[in-house]
Simulated assay, not measured.
Amino acid sequence: MELSRIAVAGSSGLIGGALVRSLAADGHEVVRLVRRAPRSEDEVRWDPEGGSVDAAGLAGCDAVVNLAGANVGSRRWTEAYKAKLRRGRVQGTAALAKALASLSPEERPRVFVNGSAIGYYGETGGRAVDESAPAGEGFLPSLVVDWEGAAAPAQEAGVRTVFPRTGLVVARHGGAWGRLFPLFQAGLGGRMGNGRQYWSFVSLHDEVAAIRHLIDRDNLSGPFNVTAPQPLTNREITEAMGRVLHRPTLFTVPAPVLRTVLGEMAGDVLGSQRVLPARLLESGFTFAFPEIEGAIRAAR
Protein backbone atom coordinates (compact mmCIF):
# COMPACT_ATOMS: atom_id res chain seq x y z
CA MET A 1 0.00 0.00 0.00
CA GLU A 2 1.36 3.43 -0.94
CA LEU A 3 1.30 5.95 1.87
CA SER A 4 -2.29 7.16 2.18
CA ARG A 5 -4.63 9.35 4.20
CA ILE A 6 -7.20 7.08 5.78
CA ALA A 7 -10.18 8.10 7.92
CA VAL A 8 -11.35 5.63 10.57
CA ALA A 9 -14.64 5.74 12.46
CA GLY A 10 -14.68 3.57 15.57
CA SER A 11 -10.95 4.06 16.16
CA SER A 12 -11.33 3.52 19.92
CA GLY A 13 -12.85 0.05 19.50
CA LEU A 14 -11.14 -3.34 19.45
CA ILE A 15 -10.75 -3.63 15.68
CA GLY A 16 -10.54 0.10 14.95
CA GLY A 17 -7.79 0.63 17.49
CA ALA A 18 -5.75 -2.26 16.11
CA LEU A 19 -6.25 -1.00 12.55
CA VAL A 20 -5.13 2.52 13.45
CA ARG A 21 -1.98 1.18 15.14
CA SER A 22 -1.18 -0.98 12.11
CA LEU A 23 -1.68 1.88 9.63
CA ALA A 24 0.28 4.39 11.70
CA ALA A 25 3.15 1.94 12.17
CA ASP A 26 3.48 1.76 8.37
CA GLY A 27 3.54 5.53 7.99
CA HIS A 28 -0.01 6.19 6.83
CA GLU A 29 -1.80 9.36 7.90
CA VAL A 30 -4.83 8.40 10.00
CA VAL A 31 -7.79 10.69 10.52
CA ARG A 32 -10.02 9.72 13.45
CA LEU A 33 -13.74 10.46 13.51
CA VAL A 34 -14.71 11.60 17.01
CA ARG A 35 -18.01 12.45 18.70
CA ARG A 36 -16.62 15.49 20.56
CA ALA A 37 -15.06 18.72 19.36
CA PRO A 38 -11.85 17.90 17.43
CA ARG A 39 -8.65 18.62 19.33
CA SER A 40 -6.20 18.31 16.45
CA GLU A 41 -6.01 18.33 12.66
CA ASP A 42 -6.22 14.54 12.50
CA GLU A 43 -9.71 14.46 14.03
CA VAL A 44 -13.09 15.00 12.35
CA ARG A 45 -16.36 15.58 14.20
CA TRP A 46 -19.33 13.29 13.65
CA ASP A 47 -22.48 12.12 15.38
CA PRO A 48 -23.40 8.62 14.13
CA GLU A 49 -26.68 8.32 16.06
CA GLY A 50 -27.67 11.82 15.00
CA GLY A 51 -26.68 11.10 11.41
CA SER A 52 -24.23 13.95 10.88
CA VAL A 53 -20.56 14.24 9.88
CA ASP A 54 -18.19 17.03 8.88
CA ALA A 55 -17.85 16.09 5.21
CA ALA A 56 -15.10 18.64 4.59
CA GLY A 57 -12.85 16.74 6.99
CA LEU A 58 -13.06 13.66 4.75
CA ALA A 59 -12.10 15.48 1.56
CA GLY A 60 -8.86 14.17 0.13
CA CYS A 61 -8.87 10.92 2.09
CA ASP A 62 -7.85 7.89 0.04
CA ALA A 63 -10.04 5.56 2.10
CA VAL A 64 -12.75 5.79 4.76
CA VAL A 65 -13.23 2.87 7.14
CA ASN A 66 -16.33 2.68 9.32
CA LEU A 67 -16.03 0.33 12.30
CA ALA A 68 -18.29 2.28 14.66
CA GLY A 69 -21.28 0.94 16.55
CA ALA A 70 -22.32 -0.08 20.06
CA ASN A 71 -21.16 -3.55 21.13
CA VAL A 72 -23.78 -6.14 20.12
CA GLY A 73 -22.84 -8.46 22.97
CA SER A 74 -22.22 -6.01 25.80
CA ARG A 75 -25.69 -6.17 27.35
CA ARG A 76 -29.19 -7.65 27.11
CA TRP A 77 -31.09 -6.78 23.97
CA THR A 78 -33.81 -4.61 25.40
CA GLU A 79 -35.94 -2.76 22.86
CA ALA A 80 -34.09 0.43 23.80
CA TYR A 81 -30.69 -1.16 23.23
CA LYS A 82 -31.73 -2.70 19.93
CA ALA A 83 -32.83 0.76 18.83
CA LYS A 84 -29.41 2.12 19.86
CA LEU A 85 -27.63 -0.61 17.89
CA ARG A 86 -29.69 0.24 14.83
CA ARG A 87 -29.22 4.01 15.14
CA GLY A 88 -25.47 3.83 15.49
CA ARG A 89 -24.93 1.45 12.60
CA VAL A 90 -27.60 2.40 10.09
CA GLN A 91 -27.72 6.16 10.68
CA GLY A 92 -23.95 6.37 11.13
CA THR A 93 -23.32 4.54 7.86
CA ALA A 94 -25.90 6.65 6.03
CA ALA A 95 -24.28 9.85 7.33
CA LEU A 96 -20.84 8.79 6.08
CA ALA A 97 -22.16 7.56 2.74
CA LYS A 98 -24.05 10.81 2.11
CA ALA A 99 -21.02 12.85 3.15
CA LEU A 100 -18.80 10.99 0.67
CA ALA A 101 -21.38 11.40 -2.07
CA SER A 102 -21.52 15.16 -1.39
CA LEU A 103 -17.82 15.59 -2.12
CA SER A 104 -16.59 16.42 -5.60
CA PRO A 105 -15.22 13.48 -7.60
CA GLU A 106 -11.68 14.76 -7.05
CA GLU A 107 -12.16 14.88 -3.26
CA ARG A 108 -13.90 11.54 -2.76
CA PRO A 109 -12.02 8.53 -1.38
CA ARG A 110 -11.39 5.65 -3.73
CA VAL A 111 -12.85 3.15 -1.25
CA PHE A 112 -15.38 3.03 1.57
CA VAL A 113 -14.90 0.02 3.86
CA ASN A 114 -18.03 -0.30 5.96
CA GLY A 115 -17.85 -2.83 8.77
CA SER A 116 -20.49 -5.54 8.78
CA ALA A 117 -21.08 -8.90 10.47
CA ILE A 118 -21.75 -12.57 9.79
CA GLY A 119 -24.97 -11.99 11.73
CA TYR A 120 -26.28 -11.36 8.19
CA TYR A 121 -26.72 -15.13 7.71
CA GLY A 122 -28.63 -15.85 10.91
CA GLU A 123 -28.81 -19.45 12.10
CA THR A 124 -27.09 -21.84 9.66
CA GLY A 125 -26.80 -24.97 11.82
CA GLY A 126 -24.21 -27.33 10.35
CA ARG A 127 -24.68 -25.92 6.85
CA ALA A 128 -21.67 -24.02 5.57
CA VAL A 129 -22.45 -20.68 3.91
CA ASP A 130 -20.44 -18.17 1.92
CA GLU A 131 -21.20 -14.74 0.49
CA SER A 132 -23.67 -16.20 -2.01
CA ALA A 133 -26.08 -17.18 0.79
CA PRO A 134 -29.17 -15.04 1.44
CA ALA A 135 -29.85 -13.09 4.62
CA GLY A 136 -31.29 -15.02 7.54
CA GLU A 137 -34.23 -14.12 9.75
CA GLY A 138 -34.34 -12.25 13.05
CA PHE A 139 -33.00 -9.07 14.58
CA LEU A 140 -29.33 -9.37 13.61
CA PRO A 141 -29.89 -10.32 9.95
CA SER A 142 -32.36 -7.48 9.48
CA LEU A 143 -29.97 -5.07 11.18
CA VAL A 144 -27.07 -6.09 8.94
CA VAL A 145 -29.20 -5.85 5.77
CA ASP A 146 -30.19 -2.27 6.67
CA TRP A 147 -26.64 -1.47 7.83
CA GLU A 148 -25.12 -2.45 4.50
CA GLY A 149 -27.99 -0.89 2.58
CA ALA A 150 -27.31 2.48 4.22
CA ALA A 151 -24.03 2.71 2.25
CA ALA A 152 -25.96 3.06 -1.03
CA PRO A 153 -25.30 6.82 -1.52
CA ALA A 154 -21.54 6.20 -1.62
CA GLN A 155 -21.94 3.30 -4.03
CA GLU A 156 -24.21 5.31 -6.29
CA ALA A 157 -21.64 8.13 -6.31
CA GLY A 158 -19.06 5.71 -7.68
CA VAL A 159 -17.09 5.04 -4.50
CA ARG A 160 -15.90 1.44 -4.33
CA THR A 161 -17.70 0.04 -1.28
CA VAL A 162 -16.71 -3.07 0.64
CA PHE A 163 -18.45 -4.86 3.52
CA PRO A 164 -16.16 -7.02 5.71
CA ARG A 165 -18.62 -9.36 7.44
CA THR A 166 -16.66 -10.11 10.59
CA GLY A 167 -16.95 -13.23 12.73
CA LEU A 168 -15.98 -13.69 16.39
CA VAL A 169 -12.66 -11.92 16.86
CA VAL A 170 -10.10 -13.79 18.99
CA ALA A 171 -8.51 -11.06 21.11
CA ARG A 172 -7.28 -10.82 24.69
CA HIS A 173 -9.13 -7.60 25.42
CA GLY A 174 -12.51 -6.70 23.97
CA GLY A 175 -15.18 -8.58 22.08
CA ALA A 176 -16.52 -12.01 23.00
CA TRP A 177 -13.08 -13.50 23.60
CA GLY A 178 -12.19 -10.69 25.96
CA ARG A 179 -14.81 -12.12 28.32
CA LEU A 180 -13.81 -15.74 27.69
CA PHE A 181 -10.10 -15.47 28.47
CA PRO A 182 -10.46 -14.56 32.18
CA LEU A 183 -12.94 -17.40 32.72
CA PHE A 184 -10.73 -20.00 31.10
CA GLN A 185 -7.58 -18.73 32.81
CA ALA A 186 -9.39 -19.09 36.14
CA GLY A 187 -10.30 -22.68 35.27
CA LEU A 188 -13.99 -21.79 34.95
CA GLY A 189 -14.29 -22.18 31.18
CA GLY A 190 -16.48 -24.71 29.45
CA ARG A 191 -18.87 -25.31 26.62
CA MET A 192 -22.07 -23.35 26.23
CA GLY A 193 -25.29 -25.24 25.73
CA ASN A 194 -24.71 -28.56 23.95
CA GLY A 195 -21.47 -27.24 22.41
CA ARG A 196 -22.42 -28.38 18.91
CA GLN A 197 -23.04 -24.88 17.56
CA TYR A 198 -20.47 -23.57 15.09
CA TRP A 199 -18.45 -20.47 15.95
CA SER A 200 -16.84 -18.70 12.98
CA PHE A 201 -13.76 -17.06 14.45
CA VAL A 202 -10.92 -14.87 13.19
CA SER A 203 -7.75 -13.66 14.89
CA LEU A 204 -7.45 -9.93 15.48
CA HIS A 205 -4.25 -9.96 13.41
CA ASP A 206 -6.06 -11.48 10.41
CA GLU A 207 -9.04 -9.15 10.86
CA VAL A 208 -6.81 -6.10 10.50
CA ALA A 209 -4.84 -7.67 7.65
CA ALA A 210 -8.08 -8.48 5.81
CA ILE A 211 -9.36 -4.90 6.12
CA ARG A 212 -6.08 -3.58 4.75
CA HIS A 213 -6.27 -6.14 1.93
CA LEU A 214 -9.76 -4.87 1.06
CA ILE A 215 -8.50 -1.27 1.07
CA ASP A 216 -5.58 -2.09 -1.19
CA ARG A 217 -7.27 -4.16 -3.90
CA ASP A 218 -9.05 -1.81 -6.28
CA ASN A 219 -11.00 -4.65 -7.90
CA LEU A 220 -12.75 -5.78 -4.70
CA SER A 221 -16.22 -4.60 -3.69
CA GLY A 222 -19.33 -5.93 -1.97
CA PRO A 223 -19.45 -8.41 0.95
CA PHE A 224 -16.47 -10.42 2.17
CA ASN A 225 -16.69 -12.87 5.06
CA VAL A 226 -13.79 -12.23 7.44
CA THR A 227 -13.62 -15.56 9.23
CA ALA A 228 -10.98 -18.28 9.46
CA PRO A 229 -11.28 -20.98 6.76
CA GLN A 230 -12.40 -23.72 9.16
CA PRO A 231 -15.16 -22.80 11.63
CA LEU A 232 -15.28 -25.02 14.71
CA THR A 233 -17.94 -26.03 17.19
CA ASN A 234 -18.13 -24.42 20.60
CA ARG A 235 -17.02 -27.75 22.10
CA GLU A 236 -13.93 -27.87 19.87
CA ILE A 237 -13.05 -24.27 20.68
CA THR A 238 -13.54 -24.94 24.40
CA GLU A 239 -11.11 -27.87 24.20
CA ALA A 240 -8.58 -25.73 22.29
CA MET A 241 -8.78 -22.98 24.93
CA GLY A 242 -8.09 -25.56 27.61
CA ARG A 243 -5.08 -26.96 25.75
CA VAL A 244 -3.49 -23.60 25.00
CA LEU A 245 -4.12 -22.12 28.45
CA HIS A 246 -3.42 -25.39 30.29
CA ARG A 247 -6.65 -25.19 32.24
CA PRO A 248 -9.50 -27.65 32.82
CA THR A 249 -12.72 -27.09 30.86
CA LEU A 250 -15.15 -29.02 33.04
CA PHE A 251 -17.82 -26.38 33.44
CA THR A 252 -20.84 -26.08 31.18
CA VAL A 253 -23.45 -23.35 30.95
CA PRO A 254 -26.85 -24.91 30.19
CA ALA A 255 -28.90 -23.28 27.45
CA PRO A 256 -31.80 -22.35 29.79
CA VAL A 257 -29.39 -20.45 32.06
CA LEU A 258 -27.96 -18.52 29.12
CA ARG A 259 -31.45 -17.62 27.94
CA THR A 260 -32.37 -16.39 31.41
CA VAL A 261 -29.21 -14.30 31.78
CA LEU A 262 -28.85 -13.01 28.23
CA GLY A 263 -32.42 -12.91 26.98
CA GLU A 264 -32.77 -12.65 23.22
CA MET A 265 -29.01 -12.27 22.83
CA ALA A 266 -28.59 -15.91 23.95
CA GLY A 267 -29.59 -16.89 20.44
CA ASP A 268 -26.34 -15.38 19.18
CA VAL A 269 -24.32 -17.49 21.67
CA LEU A 270 -26.25 -20.73 21.24
CA GLY A 271 -26.91 -20.26 17.53
CA SER A 272 -24.73 -21.95 14.95
CA GLN A 273 -23.03 -20.03 12.14
CA ARG A 274 -20.71 -21.99 9.88
CA VAL A 275 -19.41 -19.20 7.66
CA LEU A 276 -16.66 -19.55 5.05
CA PRO A 277 -14.45 -16.73 3.65
CA ALA A 278 -14.85 -17.81 0.02
CA ARG A 279 -14.39 -14.41 -1.65
CA LEU A 280 -11.50 -13.40 0.63
CA LEU A 281 -9.58 -16.57 -0.26
CA GLU A 282 -10.39 -16.17 -3.95
CA SER A 283 -8.97 -12.64 -3.82
CA GLY A 284 -5.58 -14.01 -2.74
CA PHE A 285 -5.72 -13.27 0.98
CA THR A 286 -3.60 -15.54 3.20
CA PHE A 287 -4.50 -16.10 6.85
CA ALA A 288 -1.62 -15.89 9.32
CA PHE A 289 -3.64 -17.82 11.93
CA PRO A 290 -6.09 -20.09 10.09
CA GLU A 291 -6.43 -22.52 13.02
CA ILE A 292 -7.91 -21.82 16.44
CA GLU A 293 -4.90 -22.73 18.58
CA GLY A 294 -2.67 -20.31 16.67
CA ALA A 295 -5.31 -17.59 16.97
CA ILE A 296 -5.57 -18.13 20.73
CA ARG A 297 -1.79 -18.09 21.19
CA ALA A 298 -1.53 -14.89 19.17
CA ALA A 299 -4.05 -13.27 21.50
CA ARG A 300 -2.40 -14.29 24.78
Rank of each mutant, 00 (worst) to 15 (best):
L3T: 15
I6V: 15
I6M: 06
A7I: 03
A9P: 02
S12T: 15
G17V: 13
G17L: 12
V20N: 01
V20G: 00
S22A: 15
E29N: 14
V34K: 04
R35L: 07
R35S: 08
R36L: 06
A37H: 10
P38A: 12
W46R: 06
G50F: 12
S52D: 10
V53M: 00
D54M: 02
G57F: 05
G60S: 11
V64C: 06
G69P: 13
A70P: 01
N71Q: 13
N71H: 15
V72I: 14
G73A: 15
W77R: 07
Y81V: 11
L85W: 07
R87P: 12
V90F: 00
V90A: 11
A94N: 05
A95P: 05
A97N: 07
L100E: 01
A101V: 11
S102Q: 09
S102D: 09
S102M: 09
E107R: 15
P109C: 12
R110G: 15
V111D: 04
S116N: 12
S116P: 07
A117H: 03
Y120W: 13
T124N: 04
G125K: 08
A128N: 08
D130I: 13
E131G: 03
S132D: 14
A135D: 02
E137V: 14
P141L: 02
S142D: 13
L143A: 05
V144E: 01
D146Y: 10
D146V: 02
E148S: 08
A150T: 08
A152Y: 00
P153D: 08
E156W: 03
A157Q: 03
G158Q: 09
R160N: 04
T161E: 01
V162P: 00
F163D: 00
F163A: 00
F163P: 00
T166K: 00
V170W: 04
A171L: 06
R172P: 01
R172Y: 10
R172Q: 08
H173K: 15
G174W: 04
G175M: 05
G178H: 06
G178Y: 04
F181Y: 11
L183Y: 11
F184H: 04
A186H: 09
M192I: 14
G193L: 07
N194E: 14
G195L: 11
R196V: 11
F201E: 02
E207H: 12
V208H: 12
R212M: 08
I215F: 08
D216G: 15
P223H: 10
F224Q: 00
V226Y: 05
Q230S: 13
T233E: 07
E239V: 14
H246S: 15
H246F: 14
R247N: 12
T249F: 08
V253K: 01
V253H: 02
P254S: 09
P256T: 02
V257Y: 00
L258W: 14
V261Q: 06
E264Y: 12
M265G: 01
M265P: 01
M265F: 03
A266P: 01
A266K: 02
G267E: 11
G271Q: 07
L276H: 05
P277K: 04
G284T: 08
F285W: 03
E291D: 14
E291K: 08
I292D: 02
E293C: 04
A295H: 06
I296L: 14
R300L: 15
